[in-house]
Design a protein around this nucleic acid. Sequence first.
DNA 1: GACTCACAGATTGTATAAAATCTACGGTGA
DNA 2: TCACCGTAGATTTTATACAATCTGTGAGTC
Lengths: 219, 219
Amino acid sequence: MTAPLKHRTLSAAIVDRLRTAILDGSHPAGTQLRQDALAETYGVSRIPVREALFQLEAEGFVRIVPHKGAIVSELSLEEVNDVFDLRALLEPRMLASSAPRFEDSDLAGLDAIQGRFEAAIAAGDVAQWGAINAEFHLALYAKANQPRTQSIVVALLQTSDRYTRVQLSNTEAMGVAELEHAELIRLCRAGAFAEAGRFLVHHIEAVRRDLLRVLGRAA
Amino acid sequence: MTAPLKHRTLSAAIVDRLRTAILDGSHPAGTQLRQDALAETYGVSRIPVREALFQLEAEGFVRIVPHKGAIVSELSLEEVNDVFDLRALLEPRMLASSAPRFEDSDLAGLDAIQGRFEAAIAAGDVAQWGAINAEFHLALYAKANQPRTQSIVVALLQTSDRYTRVQLSNTEAMGVAELEHAELIRLCRAGAFAEAGRFLVHHIEAVRRDLLRVLGRAA
DNA sequence: GACTCACAGATTGTATAAAATCTACGGTGA
DNA sequence: TCACCGTAGATTTTATACAATCTGTGAGTC
C-alpha cells in the first residue's frame, strides 16, 4: 500500500507522506494531528511520527505546542504575501548567479523538465504539477552556489505549492505558467540573463496575483 | 549543573545547550556527535538528544547522515557570503516595514537592549554578545509583520553569531557595532527610516568585512 | 449562582530495550 | 598482491513501556 520505498529511514518516508497529505488537503489547516492516530495509520510507532512532525514544523507546515500537539498551520494572507515577496527577492538573485554558468547539458535538463511539466498539465495531474514546478525552478538555480539561499527557496517553493493547491489549480493558470517557463528557458539559452531575471519576477508575481484573486481579497 | 530550567521540554533544553556548545567551540566543525555520548553527558536518554539534533540540523548547525550520525557543519567561505548577502537583503526590508510603526515603548525597549549590550561589552562577556546583538536586531523588526522572513532572519543571526565567534570577537569590532546600534536607534527615533535602512546595510557589511579579514581571505 | 479545586481521561514526553544498518577487519581465493 | 566476501562490533533507528502534563468535568464552598 505504500510507495516504492526510496527513503533511508521511516521518519523520512513519513515526512514525505505527511507533507503530501497536508498538500492535497487530507489534513486541512487547523487540524490537530495526533501522534497515536498517525502512527496507527502508517503502521509504525510514534517515534518516527514525532520526528516527522518536528521536521514539518521546521518546514512551516505545522505548529507544535509542547504537551499539546501539532496543528496544521494556517495560511494567512500576511504569510502569502511574505512568501511571494521573498521569492521575488531571492529567486532572481539566484538566477543571476546561476544562469551565466549554464552548460548545454543544464539547458537540456530544463527542456526535459519542461516536457514532463507539459505532460502533467495535459493529463490534469494536479499532484505532479507542484512538484515539477518546484523542480524546474530549482534547476534554474542549480549553478548558483548559494547553499543557504537554496535551502530557503526549497521551503518557499513547498509553501507556494501548498497555497496554490488551495485554489485547486485552475488549468488556465497552469497553461500560463507553462508558457512562462518556456520563455525563461528561451531567454537563458539566448544569454539574456538580465531580461530573464525581470521575466522571472513577472512570472512569480503572476502566480501571486492568481492566488490572491482566488483567495478573494486581491491586494 | 544546569541552567535555571526555563524550557517546557528536555528536548528544547538540549537544543539550547548543544547550540551554545557548538557556538563556543566545544564541538568544532567536523566533529561527529554521538547520541550515546551526548545523552550521558546531559544525563538524559537518547530520544531528546535525537530530537535536538534534528532541530539543529534545521537551523544549519549540523548535518545528519542517516545511519551514520550528526556532524557539526563546516563554515565555508561560500556560505559566509551567502548568509551576509541574505542579511543585507532581508533585514533592511524588515526595518522598512517595522520602523514606521514604532511606538515610544518600542524605542525605549531598544534603548534597554542597547544598555545591556554596552554592559556585556564592557564586561568582555563574549557569550552574551551574540545573543544580545541578535535580540537587538530582532527588536528592530518587531513590527514588520513578515512571519516567514522573521523566522529566516532568526536563523541567519544565529549562524552569524557562530561565524563571528570564530574570530573570538575582538573588542574593537564590538565597540564599532555598539556605536552603529546607537546610530540606528537615533535614526529610527528621528523618523529617518530610509537613512536607517542604508545605515543598516552599512552595519551588516562592516561585520562581514571584519569577519572576512579575520578569516584571512578578504574578498 | 459563580468560583475554586481536585480528579479522571487523554495526549504528549521520556526512558529502556530490541531491531536494522553501517564500518572495519580478517580470511579466502584468484 | 589484490579483490571479494562475510562476520563482529559499534551506532543509529524503531518499538514498547512508563512518566509527566494538560484539559475538561463535577462536586463543594462562599
